[in-house]
Amino acid sequence: MNGVAPSRRISAVSPPAAGAQGEDGPLALTAQQALWLELNQFYIREAWLLDERKLKQWLDLFTDDVLYFMPRRKNVPRRELHRELTPLGDLAILEEDKRYLEMRVARLETGMAWAEDPPSRTRHLIGNLEARRLEDGEVEARTAFLVYRSHLETDHQLLSGCREDRLRKVDGAWKVRRRMIVLDANVLLDKNLSVFL
């Protein structure tokens, strides 16, 4: 947990972590720490769903009004870094709603989505979580990822980047309602981008 033991006996405002025990009795977490744990668990769960190809369950982690967005990343001089990411409305690598995500997942099940048949072997490593609760009850969370993809015989790629998510609770479960994926690449070195990030 951030590599630092939480302060003991500080009562959590909300929600308390269930069952955490310290040497001196029950361990209380700050609301911020509890949120961090909850979201960390969310992202670990998501990574396993993706790597185990349980994509229909993965789709349930998104709200019905989700925007799944991956801008392009340009080479610009340091003094013009505000132009590095292409804004929404310019051509993006992905600008998908739930319906498009559903189509992408359904496509794989036809047995004729050749980019992923046989499927890629992926490993999603998600880390560097930072989370912040917003006034409207939503949460802003960003994470860094390394995704390894191995395909067919010897094709392999390492995708590195970050996700900036907006999440909200729907029926007691966190769901992503906006995801911006920023790749650390200008020209993608991959033959295609057929795995989910």
Binding site: L91, N186, K191, N192, L193
Partner: peptide
Amino acid sequence: ALGPMKWLEP
């Protein structure tokens, strides 16, 4: 024109 998106294909 909007773009481009760039990637390498083998």
